[in-house]
Each structure stands twice: as structure tokens, then as C-alpha cells.
Computed example of a mutant assay.
Amino acid sequence: MTAGTETGPVRTVDDADPAVRVWKRMRALVIDQHDRRRAAADAVGLSPVRVRALLEVVREPAMLSDLAERLSVDRPYATVVVDDLQRRGLVRRVPHAADRRCKIVSATTEGIEAAARASAIMNDPPAELRSLAAADLAELDRVLGSF
């Protein structure tokens, strides 16, 4: 272990550790070589965080505070993001059924369509993954599905 930080001790990473090697390879494949977040954002004319927010409310409508938590942003920034998405006609705020003081952010039809376009880009597997044998894909799916 090395010196700690505000969030806890910093662990030394050992490339001989199989978990470290696998994680580095997964990260390299998904983020370094095939990060499609920018392409998805460009395709729908939004920033990556706005795409994430839109995908979140399509998955499950939420109060602004819950959406901020799911996006790991503070509430004022989530408000800015939702305000922009609402101006674009991609989301709407509706009164909460149990508490009329609260609003629920949900996607409009246009928002659902934009989210589907972004998802199609982000969920398209890279050629390296498509080229794996069916048995290898099944094993990878099994292992990743256990998390």
C-alpha cells in the first residue's frame, strides 16, 4: 500500500495479477479503442452527459435529485442538463403522483427516439468481439453476467 488519499488508501497495481491484466484489457477494448460515447452524442446532437441523462430517464423516469445521483453529478448541474433536454423537446417534467411539489423527469417520444439512436451506436460491438468463437462469447457473457 502507498499513502492514502481523501477517498482512502491507494493500492499498488501489479500487472502480474490476473484481475489487473483482465481489467486493463477490458478497459482498453471498451474505452481506449472503442469508446462510442462521442459518436453517439454527435449523432443526436447532445453532449455525452446529456445522452447519459436521456438514457437514464428512458430507462426509468426519475425525480431530479435521483437523476443527479444516478449521473454522479450535483443537483444544480442535473437541472442545467434537464433544462437543456426539455428545451430540445426530449424530456418533460410531470408532477409526482404522491407529492405535487416534486416533478418527475420522463422522456418524450422524440427523446425515446434519440436515445434509441444513441444506444444503437454505443451497443454495436467492435469487430474484435464479433470475431470471437460462439463458445468464447458464451463464456465471456456468463462471466460478465455474474457481476
Rank of each mutant, 00 (worst) to 15 (best):
V30R: 12
E56W: 07
V81D: 04
E113F: 07
R101F: 05
A43N: 01
V58N: 05
S131G: 05
A19H: 15
V105L: 03
L90T: 05
R101E: 10
R87W: 07
V91C: 11
G145S: 04
K24P: 01
V51N: 08
L132E: 05
R117M: 09
D141T: 14
R37N: 06
L67W: 06
R142N: 06
V57P: 07
P48G: 06
V82S: 08
L85Y: 03
D35V: 02
R50H: 09
S106C: 13
R100S: 11
G8P: 11
H34Q: 11
G145A: 00
E60V: 10
D136H: 06
D136V: 13
E110T: 08
A97G: 04
S106M: 11
R38L: 14
P95M: 03
L90K: 06
R50C: 05
V30M: 13
H96R: 02
D17T: 03
E128H: 02
E60A: 09
T12W: 10
G45F: 05
R50Q: 15
R101G: 07
R100M: 06
R52T: 13
V91P: 04
V30C: 07
A134I: 10
E113A: 15
R88A: 15
R38Q: 15
V58E: 06
R117T: 14
A62L: 14
D99Q: 11
P95Q: 01
A68K: 09
D42F: 00
S72G: 06
A40T: 04
V30T: 12
R88Q: 09
D35A: 04
D15G: 06
R130H: 05
F147Q: 06
A116P: 03
R130W: 01
V94D: 05
P126S: 12
A133I: 00
H96L: 01
L129G: 06
A43S: 14
A134H: 12
A3I: 08
A133H: 15
L137A: 01
R130S: 07
D74N: 13
P18N: 05
S65K: 09
A53K: 05
V82K: 04
R92E: 10
R21Y: 02
R87P: 03
T109N: 13
R59T: 15
D15H: 07
M1N: 03
G111V: 01
D84V: 11
D84K: 15
Q86N: 10
I112P: 00
I31N: 07
A19G: 06
V82W: 08
C102L: 08
A19L: 14
L67E: 12
R50P: 01
L90R: 11
G111E: 03
I112N: 01
D74A: 13
A115Y: 02
R27K: 07
R36Q: 13
E60S: 08
K24I: 03
Y77E: 12
A127C: 04
D15I: 04
L90C: 03
V80I: 09
G8C: 09
